[in-house]
Design a protein around this nucleic acid. Structure first.
Lengths: 144, 144
DNA sequence: ACCATTTCATATCATATGAAATGAATTGTC
DNA sequence: GACAATTCATTTCATATGATATGAAATGGT
């Protein structure tokens, strides 16, 4: 008999929703940034000159969402969009100085939140947990 | 330095999105049911005569979503809504015979999907994983 | 070189979502 | 027992979302 409270897809979703909501509260209220925008900024902090496509392939958001997040970030001056001269269909996204500053401000808060969220687990359990998630994510997606 | 690919809220969300999408594909396409509706049905299969409020408190969906899911399920004949005679503000939801049949058809598919999703883990790892999620969910939500 | 196909980002549009408003019913207080 | 405050479900409304359409640019086959 299926019990919802033991059903893994449900549990993972519940946890994910909680982590997102709480984390969103951190930068939504303090920096006026959405989760989608935050992901984009965090990704650009690691990877320079990235196209929209590269982002939505890597960052688990669909095309429209990335495109819109990028436009908002451009408007607010955190990101610069340049047309790739070698292939004029592509856009190169990069953080502006203002964008880098934003990342530097949010980063420690995000890491602090992560620690706090994991605080019910021992350091060892936290590592185990991360490892198990990697394993699950690594396996190829089930047939669409 | 924060790396998105090691950042737990992001990873959990990514996994959750994948589990939801794949699972949704199972009952969306075969039974015309959304995730929200499925959760409601699954909850009602366990708990009889439940109010909207009880559901959204327990099932991690907001009021509107539960209310709308319940209305759709009523329309399609899977759920019966009755006004609680003792407190006429409350609604009692219960599965119809048709609703129970639906649950019985979906249940084994849902469990099969769960097994498949967990297949990259050993039986032991799967239990560990579930345990860790429980621990994380059990801890009181961080300050709103 | 030409045309069909593909790829990329954005725009469009219909639907989903959730916060706040609404209205009905109940409870508590004086 | 009246009436203010609260609780519950639904509705409303503005925004978010995502599937599809669009148009611009690049690629491949002949």
């Amino acid at each position: 008999m299926l019990e919802l409270d033991r059903f893994l897809p449900y549990l993972v979703n519940k946890l994910a929703a909680r982590l997102s909501d709480e984390l969103a509260a951190v930068y939504q209220k303090r920096f006026g940034i959405t989760i989608a925008e935050w992901r984009l900024v965090a990704h650009l902090a690691e990877h320079k000159n990235v196209s929209i496509r590269e982002i939505f392939v890597r960052v688990a958001m669909d095309k429209s969402k990335v495109s819109r997040a990028a436009s908002r970030l451009e408007l607010s001056g955190f990101v610069k969009k340049t047309i790739n001269p070698a292939d004029r269909r592509l856009i190169e996204l990069q953080l502006t100085a203002k964008g880098r500053k934003l990342f530097e401000k949010i980063e420690p808060l995000a890491l602090a939140y992560e620690r706090e969220a994991l605080s019910p687990l021992s350091a060892q359990d936290a590592e185990t947990f991360r490892g198990l998630i990697y394993k699950l994510l690594a396996s190829p997606p089930t047939a669409r």
